[in-house]
Design a protein around this nucleic acid. Structure first.
Length: 307
DNA sequence: GTCTAGTAAGGCAGCAAGGC
DNA sequence: GCCTTGCTGCCTTACTAGAC
């Protein structure tokens, strides 16, 4: 704890140039006396920290002394800083996270030129404010083993109450999820954050010792169990777009210029909408039951426009 | 379980230096 | 001179680890 504070004090002084002992004491929530002792120990360790008294005074690191990037090289720092930039936007109200960001910003000062060629955006345009608030609550709940209560919007636009024991925050396919044990469904579930409303922190729960790998396996098995092998035929016009949705080995180019794609999909409403998203350029070849479902689905749409 | 030593931290008092 | 800030010494408290 103390060694960690020493390093943070050094980084803060290095980052800000001049910092008062009082400011450091407030930041670390310790007494001024403790900060003086810390500064003394840091100086004894050979770091040239100097001080000026009076108004406008404080601690500073003497010229020509820089903090080395001990563990990371330039190429490793670049993607980390891009990610930290994003996470700062999302977790900015977490004091512990802000300390980490400060450390990375210190690295940025020495690596600035190398950080400009990578940009990552993990925000969501429709619920920026809620996203930040929910991520903060989720993070806190996981750290303190606390229940999360929220309303979850299902496909029928019904608001269903959920009480969950959170395990992990995940960012996949451009969306944030909370992986948790649902105390209502008595099962592990993945909740899409854009469907969550009115999230609140609840009481403390006893942490289940299930590993992240086991949970991953549960979701993977569930996905496979609910998935079917689908064969799709695409027109030559849409060929270029297929690589956005499918891996190379799943796409076969036929002699007539059309494409065949074979892949596993979860068998739900989303699949039909996904296929229809390609419009007239996609045809279901198999399985037959999906082809029949598509026919019914399209008939329903047609009837809406044929009054 | 109890005692002891070490460590970390807080509080207080007094002093020095610098800026306004 | 007053205010702000740093510096130091002394005492106390709380916690932890090790010895018995």
């Amino acid at each position: 704890m103390r060694a960690e504070r020493f390093l943070s004090i050094l980084i803060i002084i290095s980052q800000k140039g001049l910092v008062t002992g009082r400011a450091l004491a407030e930041h670390f929530e310790v007494s001024l006396r403790t900060i003086y002792r810390d500064i003394e120990k840091i100086s004894e360790a050979g770091v040239p920290i100097a001080a000026t008294g009076g108004k406008g005074g404080g601690y500073y690191i003497m010229e020509n002394y820089t903090l080395n990037n001990l563990f990371l090289n330039k190429k490793e720092i670049e993607p980390l800083i891009a990610v930290m930039d994003n996470l700062k936007f999302l977790f900015g109200n977490n004091p512990q996270f802000n300390d980490i960001v400060l450390k990375f910003e210190t690295l940025r000062n020495t690596e600035k030129k190398e950080c400009d060629n990578l940009s990552i955006d993990m925000s969501h345009f429709s619920m920026e404010k809620e996203l930040r608030e929910y991520l903060f609550l989720m993070n806190k709940a996981i750290e303190e083993n606390r229940i999360l209560e929220f309303e979850y919007i299902n496909r029928k636009m019904e608001y269903l109450k959920r009480v969950v024991e959170p395990i992990q925050i995940e960012f996949t396919d451009g969306h944030w999820y909370i992986i948790a044990f649902c105390t209502i469904r008595k099962d592990y579930r993945k909740f899409k954050l854009v469907r969550v409303r009115n999230m609140k922190l609840g009481g403390v729960f006893k942490k289940n010792l299930i590993s992240k790998e086991e949970i991953k396996k549960i979701f993977s098995e569930s996905y496979e169990k609910n998935s079917i092998l689908v064969t799709l035929k695409f027109s030559s016009e849409i060929g270029g777009q297929l690589s956005e949705y499918f891996s190379k080995e799943k796409i076969t180019l036929l002699e007539n210029g059309t494409y065949i794609v074979e892949d596993f999909f979860p068998e739900d409403e989303g699949l039909k909408k996904f296929i229809l998203g390609f419009g007239n350029d996609c045809e279901v070849i198999g399985p037959d039951k999906l082809r029949k479902k598509m026919v019914e689905y399209i008939k329903n749409i047609y009837s809406k426009y044929n009054d």
